[in-house]
Structures are given as C-alpha cells and as structure tokens.
Simulated assay, not measured.
Amino acid sequence: MTRWRFDGEITGVGTGSGVRIVVGHWSRSPLGEFTDVMVEHADGLRVLLAPSDAVRDFVTATYTFDRTVITPVHYTRSGDSRAVQAGDLHVRFEVGARTLLGHLLNLVPRTVAGAPWFCSVSDPIARVVLRGVRTRGTAGNGRREFYGAVDQRRLAGMSATWCGENLGALTPVDPPVRFGFGSTPRTPAVTTIVTTIVD
C-alpha cells in the first residue's frame, strides 16, 4: 500500500460564461510544488492543464478528462490576491473573509483533520451540508482518496479569460464539476486542504 500526501489549496470558481475552474496549488507533494488547473466548459468539455507529464499522468490516473494540455502553469500570490496563468487560461482572484465552515475547521487540529479516518467520518456531513462535496471516495484505478479541509475563505472577486475571451463575472460553481467522485463547494472559495491518496 502506497500513501501519497498533498498539502495545498483548492480554489473553485464559477463564471458567467458557464465555465467552472478548479485550481489546485500544492506547496508540498510527492511531485514537488506544483499547480494544476481543471476546467469544465459550459458544454461539459473537461480539460486538464498540467505543468508536466508526471503531473498529468498522476492526475489523469485519479480524475477524468476529455482533453489534457501540458503547459507552464504559473501561480503567484500577493497578499490576498492570486493569479494563475496556464496556457489559454488567465485567472486572477481575490481571497476574502473566512467562511463559517473555515472557522469551524480551525477548531480541529490539522493532524486530525487530515487523517483518513476523520475524512471518512466527516463525509456524510459534507455531502448534506456542502451539496456535492465529498471528503472520501474511490478514485481512478482502484485508488482511494481522502480530503482533509483545514481552512476555507470565500472569494471576494475574480477575473478570467480563455483564449482571450472574458469568462464573465464570478458565479456559484453550478452545475457541479465532474472530474472525480466529488465537486468543490458551490460558493466560490479557496479551501486549505490535506489530500491523501491510497494506492
């Protein structure tokens, strides 16, 4: 049994054009520090933007896409601002106040919140309270995956373009994205997370 642990942030964004974007920025992982971006278009086309073959191969072994693109993915942060450039996609978002869920998550020690057993216990609650969000599930190729959220902040603003086209205003992530067994929260937010994948 192999356990892969990823520490980072997942940002879920909805846009007025119907494009939904999920940015994963991983500060610590078995693949080093990296950022990957999952995009689902209004017509349902699911695209992965990955910075390397290694990241693409790992992510596509766990999630489902219609198309993958290897391209430099640049993630920058300055205060509460974040910017992502990945091929045809440019996204900038502002991180706002901590959510009520974020305050509750802060009460749980990080070592507990990230533990697979705790993710298993919290999964039924997340399904009901967060609509579509899962904290455990079966990933691709028989893998099991556990999401341990430790903080969450809402997004205060966003701008994004795809192939130079403005994607519109910030909206809820609706309908839910379909990359794996769960979606991101419906309300646009950045969630600090510990992800464990058991192979």
Rank of each mutant, 00 (worst) to 15 (best):
R143H: 15
V59L: 10
T62A: 14
S27R: 13
R20N: 07
V55W: 06
E9G: 05
G79K: 00
L48F: 00
S52M: 01
Q85S: 15
H74T: 14
A169M: 10
A97D: 15
A50M: 08
V177Y: 02
A86V: 00
R127D: 08
T64A: 14
L107Q: 10
E9H: 07
A126M: 10
A54P: 10
S52C: 06
E165V: 15
R186W: 03
S81D: 12
G87P: 10
A54K: 15
L100Y: 06
C163H: 12
V121F: 15
V13T: 04
T11R: 03
V84D: 05
V37R: 02
F58Y: 13
R144F: 13
M1F: 06
I125D: 06
H74E: 14
G157T: 01
F181N: 09
T187Q: 08
L105F: 02
W4V: 15
V173E: 04
T68E: 13
T195K: 12
G102I: 02
E94Y: 01
E40D: 07
S52P: 08
V194I: 13
R143T: 13
E94R: 10
R110N: 10
C119N: 12
P188D: 06
T191A: 11
R20V: 03
F34P: 03
R82M: 02
A189C: 13
D174G: 05
N141D: 13
R131F: 12
A156T: 00
V121T: 11
R153T: 05
P172E: 13
W4P: 13
V95Y: 03
V39Y: 01
G180R: 00
M158G: 09
M38F: 11
W162T: 07
H25C: 01
F181P: 09
Q85L: 14
T192E: 11
G87K: 03
R178P: 04
H74N: 12
D43C: 06
P109D: 06
G180T: 05
G12K: 01
P176W: 00
V84E: 03
R186V: 13
A61F: 00
T184C: 14
R131M: 14
D7K: 10
T192I: 05
A149G: 13
I193N: 12
V19I: 07
T196C: 11
G182I: 01
D7L: 14
G32W: 04
G182C: 07
F93A: 03
C163K: 11
S78A: 14
D36C: 09
G182H: 03
L104F: 05
P30M: 03
S27H: 11
A149P: 15
D199V: 12
L155S: 03
R46D: 07
V198D: 14
E145F: 12
F6L: 15
M1E: 08
R131N: 14
S81L: 11
T71K: 04
F34C: 04
T64R: 14
G157R: 01
L31T: 02
F6V: 12
W162A: 10
G137Y: 05
V22R: 09
G96P: 00
T171A: 15
T35F: 02
G18C: 03
V198F: 08
P116K: 05
G14N: 00
D123P: 08
T76V: 12
G87Q: 05
V198L: 11
L107D: 05
A115S: 13
T135C: 11
L155E: 07
